[in-house]
Amino acid sequence: MPNIRLAIVGLGKIARDQHLGAIAATDGIDLVAVASRNASLENIHCFPDIDALLASDVDVDAVSLCTPPQGRFEQARAALMAGKHVMLEKPPGATIAEVFALEALARKQGVSLFATWHSREAAAVEPARRLLAERRIQSVEVEWKEDVRHWHPGQAWIWEPGGLGVFDPGINALSIVTRIMPESFHLVSSELSFPANRAAPIAADLEFQTASGTPIKAAFDWRQTGPQTWDIRVSTQEGDVVLTHGGSRLIVNGEAQIVEEDREYRSLYKHFVDLVSSKRSDTDFSPLVHVADAFMLGRRNVVESFED
């Protein structure tokens, strides 16, 4: 099969930090075009938006959408209607209904749709999943705290409806927990802290429960400075299983098992190549469902204003 000819839509921070290098390191895929209002790349076909890209004579097989979730539905729909395979940066959309609509459209068009969760590709996630399948889980605690000014400098869209606020990183934790837990879980309470001048939360405290009654607690916060915290602690009758550093490190019963470098986006693009080659889709929207539930059950607390 010839290499997939890929276009990136949205050449912002995440595309430059993660996507470009991962594409260059992945066999079977070539970046041939970019659609971005404010950025371009040398020696690559560049367009102001996806409509101009799709109307051009540049041959593109697939589109990777790296734009904010608000407005992404129309971009994804246009690409799917044009017969292009589509890869969605997380979160896959701004609402639950729209991502299921895209899934149905991709099926109808006979093309691949990939809803990516980069944190699931961290080195310790699959080993933790296999380990927990054999253990008796007692409780789970998630602590996901980082500095929004460092990771999203000047990005106003994250504070608008559909931008998710602190759930932009928090959904990464939920993508891991939904992967490693042997049974499903649902939300039972949600406390959301909204800055007085923002439309999206800056912190969240959540409580979930599995079907068998196992408690899961999660604390997300965007106000942490200094060292960042991305930890998931699973207490089992056989001892503790801890994922740290966003899922790249695994500690079992106090002993380090896995410590590896970041390969998340390279793994995503490798999987995308496999999906397109085999004409399959990968559309697990469960992390976004949990975020939607957090807003539905969320008790709103107003905290001090946030200035970037």
Rank of each mutant, 00 (worst) to 15 (best):
W222A: 06
G170E: 13
V259C: 11
H118Q: 06
L113I: 10
L131T: 02
Y265F: 10
R266Q: 13
I4V: 10
S267C: 02
M1R: 07
L268P: 02
D231N: 14
E307H: 14
R249E: 05
S190H: 10
E304G: 11
R299Q: 09
I44P: 15
I158L: 15
A294W: 04
L206V: 07
A203I: 12
G162D: 02
A79Q: 05
A122Y: 01
I29R: 06
V177P: 01
A7L: 13
F208W: 01
Q209G: 09
D49Q: 06
P195Q: 01
V241I: 12
R263Q: 08
D205E: 12
G163V: 01
P161W: 09
A218M: 11
F306N: 03
V58H: 06
D59N: 10
H19G: 04
S267N: 12
I251C: 00
L132Y: 05
N172P: 01
T229N: 11
E207L: 07
L102I: 01
V289M: 14
T210I: 01
Y269E: 00
A35Q: 09
R129N: 02
A76G: 04
Q109L: 05
E255F: 02
T283A: 11
G28K: 00
A35F: 11
L192G: 04
A97T: 03
L54P: 05
I171Q: 02
W230D: 04
W157M: 04
E160M: 14
A94E: 15
V32Y: 07
S278L: 14
D274G: 10
S286R: 15
V302M: 08
H45G: 12
G162W: 12
A25W: 00
A211E: 11
K13S: 10
V34F: 09
F220A: 03
A133N: 08
D57S: 15
H150V: 05
L174S: 00
S40Q: 11
R136G: 15
R16A: 15
M81D: 15
G246C: 09
F272P: 02
D168A: 00
P195M: 03
V259A: 09
A133T: 10
Q257G: 03
N197A: 02
S277M: 10
D240T: 12
E146G: 07
Q228E: 11
P227Q: 09
Q70F: 07
V60M: 06
E141G: 09
A196H: 10
